[in-house]
């Protein structure tokens, strides 16, 4: 092969990536989503440095006793204002809503991200194994998927809430991931079933490459775009599941906070003191919206021909 041709090939591999990036950035809603998510992430990371108050009510800066004196509403409630440093107001006990919202945002983002990484990995492994091996393995694994889909994950997680609430939020992440991978696994499976008939997989098989290696080195890398898209969308789904559980007291629990538990606390008096839940609720919607816009933008960028989005 001449050097010229090689260079051309190099250009083409480069240009595919460039093409995807260009397509993504030409998509207005995807760029809006990315901008919003970057802003929200920056807020979550930098937020604690913007306020003298802390989310932890047991700490020195957790409660503002002046709020009790200033409050026109009774208790420690004060409306949002920049003068006294409570950008989002204060709660009934005098806690700073801004500091708590930032903490909740951090927690929800972190949980969403971790759950998406775990559940997409499980989905990739199970789906690819089932689709590649077919036969009995496939039947067994798909039956497991069916079984896990019978009971809404919300039900199981609520029942198990005692376990993970006593042993910390990392177990919550593991359990959320354990009941969140099934639908992605089905999609991965159907893609693997068509990939396994392709020449490069066949060649690898006939060369005696072991199954585990074919799946990890040939099948999964070839579904990278699908996994990236689904992984992104799973972040939003995971955040919704987590906040839902926390809203009912089955997820992240006091003293720690998540966006869900903050909204739950705020709703009791949502009509009279809207700042108690407005910001956490707004940030939650904005985060999930931004993530789904990015996910759909990625899909359009990777595969501009697809109209039907996720094929199952």
């Amino acid at each position: 092969m001449s050097e010229k041709k090689l260079n051309q090939a190099k250009d083409e591999t480069l240009s595919r990536r460039q093409l995807i990036v260009r397509r993504f950035f030409r998509n207005k809603s995807a760029v809006f989503g990315l901008g919003t998510l970057l802003f929200i992430t920056a807020l979550a990371v930098l937020g604690p440095y913007l306020t003298p108050w802390t989310w932890d009510l047991s700490k020195e800066n957790g409660l503002d006793f002046n709020a009790f004196i200033d409050s026109p509403y009774g208790g420690g409630l004060t409306a949002p204002s920049f003068d006294d440093g409570h950008y989002f107001g204060t709660s009934q006990v005098g806690g700073d809503v801004f500091a708590q919202t930032i903490r909740g945002l951090q927690k929800s983002l972190l949980i969403g991200l971790l759950v998406a990484v775990f559940s997409t990995s499980i989905a990739a492994i199970v789906g690819a194994t089932a689709g590649y091996l077919m036969g009995r393995t496939d039947k067994g694994l798909m039956w497991l998927v069916d079984l896990l889909l019978v009971l809404p994950s919300f039900l199981i997680l609520a029942i198990l809430s005692r376990w993970y609430q006593s042993s910390g939020w990392l177990l919550l992440v593991v359990l959320l991931a354990a009941f969140n991978w099934m639908i992605t696994a089905r999609i991965v499976r159907s893609v693997s079933m068509s990939l396994r008939e392709r020449d490069f997989i066949r060649a690898a098989r006939y060369m005696g490459v072991p199954t585990r290696k074919i799946i990890s080195k040939h099948l999964i890398p070839n579904m990278a775009s699908l996994l990236i898209i689904d992984g992104t969308l799973n972040v939003g789904g995971a955040i919704l599941s987590e906040t839902g559980l926390s809203y009912l007291g089955f997820g992240v629990r006091a003293p720690d906070v998540s966006l869900g538990s903050l909204i739950a606390e705020g709703t009791a008096s949502a009509l009279t003191y809207p700042w108690l839940f407005m910001f956490s609720g707004g940030l939650l919607i904005l985060t999930v919206l931004a993530i789904s816009l990015i996910g759909d933008g990625l899909r359009d960028a990777f595969d501009p021909g697809s109209k039907s989005g996720r094929k199952s």
């Binding site: 919704l240 839902g244 869900g260 919607i285 789904s292």
Partner: peptide, 18 residues
């Protein structure tokens, strides 16, 4: 539908109540 799908059920319910 994008916005609604990004809003958890409990938030939809609270906002409707509002």
């Amino acid at each position: 539908s994008y916005i609604i799908l990004s809003t958890p059920v409990f938030l939809i319910a609270i906002l409707l109540k509002f």
